[in-house]
Simulated scan of single mutants.
Amino acid sequence: MKIFKLTLLVFLIAFTTTTYAQDASNDATWEETINFITKYKEYIVETNHRTINSHLEIKNIDIVDTSIKIHIDLNKDFYIKKINHYPNRLFADFIMLNLKNINSTHYSSSYGGIQLYLKNNAVNFKNVIESYRNKNNSKPYYSERKIKDITYDDIILYVDDEDVSDRLAKAFEHLAYLATNKREEERKASGDKF
Rank of each mutant, 00 (worst) to 15 (best):
S110K: 14
N88P: 01
Y141Q: 07
I155C: 07
I155W: 06
N121P: 01
I102Q: 07
K139Y: 14
L168G: 03
S138L: 14
K76F: 06
H85Y: 11
K146E: 12
D93N: 13
S108F: 10
D153Y: 12
K76P: 00
T151V: 11
N103S: 11
K148F: 08
I68P: 02
I72M: 03
R89P: 04
S104N: 12
G113W: 04
K76D: 12
I156T: 15
N124Q: 14
F125C: 02
N101H: 11
L90R: 08
S104I: 03
N121R: 13
R89V: 01
I95H: 05
Y111H: 13
S165Y: 05
L168H: 04
S67C: 01
I72N: 02
Q115C: 07
R89H: 07
D77V: 00
S108Q: 14
I102D: 00
H71A: 05
L157G: 05
R167I: 06
N75G: 02
F91H: 13
N88F: 10
N84P: 01
E162D: 14
D163V: 14
V123E: 02
H85K: 10
S104H: 06
Y141S: 07
K100P: 00
I95K: 02
K81F: 05
L99V: 05
I129E: 10
Y79A: 13
G113T: 03
D160Y: 06
G112M: 10
N136Y: 05
Y107G: 07
A169N: 03
I102H: 06
A122S: 15
K100Y: 09
N101A: 09
I156V: 15
G112K: 04
S110F: 13
I155E: 10
D163W: 05
K135G: 14
I155H: 05
S104T: 12
L99P: 02
D161I: 05
K135Q: 11
T105K: 14
N134A: 10
R167V: 03
I150S: 07
I102N: 03
S108H: 10
D163P: 00
I150R: 09
N101R: 10
I156G: 00
E130M: 13
H106S: 14
I83F: 10
S108R: 14
L97G: 07
A122Y: 09
N98L: 06
N88M: 11
D73E: 09
H85T: 13
S131D: 09
K148C: 02
I114W: 05
Y142L: 04
D73A: 10
Y107T: 03
Y158N: 08
R145Q: 12
N121V: 00
Y79K: 13
I72G: 02
L90M: 12
S109N: 09
Y142C: 06
N134W: 03
N103T: 11
I150N: 06
R145C: 01
I129A: 06
I102W: 05
I95Q: 03
S143G: 14
K81P: 00
I70Y: 07
